[in-house]
Amino acid sequence: MIGKIFPKSAGSFKNRIRYIFGCTKHDHEISGIRTISFNTMSKDPLPGVLQGNEADLSEMIREFDQVETLRRFSIDSDKLIKPVFHAMLSLRPGESLTTPQWRSAVEKYMTDLGFDESNQFVAVMHQDKDHQHVHIVANRISLNDDFSMVKDSNERSISLESVSGIEDRFGLSKAPKPKDTWGVSITHAELQASIRDNDLPLKHKMIAKIAGAIEATNAQDGDMFTFTRLLRKQKVYINLTLNEEGQPKGISFEFDGKHISGRQLKRSRLTWHKLTTQEGIHYDPETISELQRETARRDSEEQERVRVYLYEFRSKQRRTYVRFTAKQIELFKMIEEMLKILEFIFGGGFKPIETTAKRHYIEYVPGKEKNFIQQLELESFTVTH
């Protein structure tokens, strides 16, 4: 489940309430709509709305708006307030809750955020194909003697904890935590795309990868080269923008064919300046040429660790050259395999010496020694030019 708190607003509740009851244009298809719970004196307006009659809806809006009018007459204050609270609780595709379960989830969420029975609220569920989500509109003004306002300090972290509790209660999929996205908020469009694709939005996925690379770089007292290589392991690539002196002034990150600047990802942490000062990733201006070559690489970690070797296998009677690729840790094992092959062909007595490129050599493919020997039985051996 993902919890989203929309920006609060002043003035009438009209637009928000009409929106959640499906009376205005939506950015998603509504295949079903259901009132979950409300605590106003006015009755559920949904039956009338579905028949094209908004009389009960207007009555509910009037009741919400009236509270601020009462507060204004009772409290001598010109301070601007934003009483309109709007939140959304969204399930992953394929997950669902019954109406009583949704009612329980809404009650817990509102209570955790500091709302009680003195605050008006209405909760409406939208069904978008196989995706359920509930909109909650509430009045932050309490209907008590002093018309106090529900506090909104730390509401984001409280919302996350509340959603986590709801997930545990009903066995729902866990939403990404702030450490996964470095506290970067998710926009409404990103939230909808995330729910539709059952995945983190690209922006937040990139931030998670970059954050991990920063932590790993610092843990090994690494530098910008270390940072670049750690990102490349995750298929995240760096692109630098240079100033007139030929030094980096900007940085962007590439993942899955998409480019996002560090400033757009997280201005307070992922710009070039922040990475090299605040985040402690060391950069030596003298290494700019090498760094440009490093950031331009797109090979995988497996490819980085592979070398091509040409060895001279020498005996008293002859010299034979074999070219093969190998990871360093497998080198000696492969030489042993080659000695077996050459002994099969020419008899023993060969000693290996690493050499430079030669015109004639035998091509050796790791992991296919047996097939190679079987082929030699039929064809002698293949010499590559």
Rank of each mutant, 00 (worst) to 15 (best):
D44S: 03
G94H: 02
P93C: 07
H126W: 02
M125C: 04
V137Q: 01
G52C: 07
M125P: 01
S96D: 07
E59P: 04
G52T: 05
T40F: 10
G94D: 05
R103E: 10
Y109S: 04
E68C: 03
S58F: 09
S96Y: 04
F73C: 15
P83I: 13
H86S: 11
P100N: 10
E59Q: 13
M110F: 07
S90P: 04
N53E: 13
Y109G: 02
S37V: 12
H86L: 10
P100M: 09
K82Q: 15
E117K: 11
D56E: 15
H135P: 01
S96F: 02
V122F: 02
L80V: 15
K108M: 13
L80F: 11
R103G: 08
E63P: 05
K108W: 10
D128P: 02
N119W: 05
K82M: 15
H135C: 01
F38H: 15
E63H: 05
S77R: 09
T35C: 15
A123G: 01
S58L: 14
Y109N: 07
P100G: 08
S104I: 04
R34F: 12
N119D: 09
D128T: 04
E59V: 11
D116H: 03
D65Y: 03
D44N: 12
N53S: 11
G32H: 05
D78V: 14
V122M: 06
M125K: 06
I136K: 00
R72G: 11
D65G: 04
I33E: 00
E95T: 02
H28S: 12
D44I: 00
V124F: 03
P93G: 03
N39K: 06
G114L: 11
I81P: 06
K79H: 13
Q120L: 14
F85N: 11
R62V: 13
E29D: 14
V137I: 12
Q127E: 12
A105G: 05
M60D: 09
V67K: 14
Q127R: 07
R92M: 05
V122H: 03
P47A: 07
D65H: 05
H126N: 05
P83C: 13
F64K: 03
S42K: 13
I136L: 06
R71A: 12
D116K: 04
H133N: 01
I81H: 05
S118L: 10
E59L: 14
M41D: 15
I33R: 00
D44A: 02
P47L: 12
V106C: 09
E59F: 12
F85W: 12
N39T: 10
P47T: 08
I61K: 04
V122G: 01
I136Q: 02
G52V: 03
T35V: 15
S74G: 11
A55K: 15
S96P: 05
F38G: 13
H28K: 13
E117M: 09
H131E: 00
E54Y: 09
Q66D: 15
E107H: 06
A105N: 07
G32C: 04
A123K: 00
V137H: 02
V137Y: 02
M60R: 10
K43L: 14
D116L: 01
H133E: 01
N39F: 04
L89F: 00
H133I: 01
R71I: 08
A123L: 03
L89S: 01
H131K: 00
L50Y: 06
T69F: 09
G48T: 11
Q51H: 10
H86N: 11
F121M: 08
D112M: 12
R34C: 14
L91N: 09
H131L: 00
V122N: 00
R92L: 02
